[in-house]
Design a protein around this nucleic acid. Structure first.
Ligand SMILES: [Mn+2]
Ligand SMILES: [Mn+2]
Ligand SMILES: [Zn+2]
Ligand SMILES: [Zn+2]
Lengths: 133, 133
DNA sequence: TTATTATTGCAACAATGTTGCATAAAATAA
DNA sequence: TTATTTTATGCAACATTGTTGCAATAATAA
């Protein structure tokens, strides 16, 4: 993770470095509102474009849970494009509200007869490990 | 399913009946754009409010898949509120583009140590049974 | 250092969704 | 059926979210 931006072949600008550092700082997924607050100087349009290119280059991925605003999290795996294939679960805690990527021992194998499943997205809501303790 | 609107204790208006008939006509989930096209006379605001109350009363549920517009489908189960607990999978076909609710034999049991899972949402993308044939 | 290429930020726009309020319609009571 | 109450509708106006053209600026390559 020395130089993710250069590795992904996008120019390294102060704005992008700051956005990236915000995502790496958090251990969970965050919505744009948090990125905005963390940025000391922010431009709406540039942020949208930054999010877009980070998604395209496989730097972050988007988590959309019904009733929530979009959340974004760093890709742990080596995602090359915006076609992500994460073997983890997206969890939304109903108490603290945090959305996070949770690794799971064995990712379930879903079989639908006659269908061909290429990608799976599993979302769970409930109580996170902190709030459930 | 004689009178769903009355059963759910919301007034029965021509607009709501027409929207409901559109949802029942389709065997898959549909986005608002299709509802609009099917309605002969439509008002944007009234449609939004109709969708909202249908969601609240458990008449329809929303399916949000990354990169797609929201899709809506009739609730098969007896959903009372907007807290849905469907034991099916939301499938998006990458060829025909259709989003549908697919029943599955045994719904997977996900176990995350220390977490308490209250609801699960499983989304799959790939080829539907028609496109995979 | 210079030339080339890509990013930024402004303005303007587009799409999506919400709210107050007067009118109209539906449900309920008489 | 008719009168009363309750709820839905549609307009206008606004709010939020996301996009695009373009000139200035900054980053990369030569
Ligand atoms: Mn994730
Ligand atoms: Mn469904
Ligand atoms: Zn929590
Ligand atoms: Zn298909």
């Amino acid at each position: 993770m020395t130089n993710l931006l250069k590795n992904k072949k996008i120019s390294e600008t102060p704005f992008r470095k700051e956005v990236l550092s915000i995502f790496t700082k958090y251990n969970n997924a965050i919505p744009l509102s948090i990125v905005e607050k963390e940025l000391r100087e922010y431009n709406r349009i540039t942020l949208y474009r930054t999010i877009k290119i980070f998604l395209e280059k496989g730097i972050i991925h988007e988590i959309i849970i019904t009733g929530e605003k979009s959340n974004y999290a760093i890709c742990q795996e080596e995602c090359v494009t915006n076609l992500h294939y994460h073997q983890h679960i997206h969890f939304k805690c109903n108490r603290c509200g945090i959305v996070s990527c949770v690794e799971i021992g064995k990712f379930p194998a879903i079989i639908l007869p006659k269908y061909k499943i290429e990608q799976l997205e599993i979302q769970a809501t409930g109580l996170c490990k902190k709030c459930n303790a």
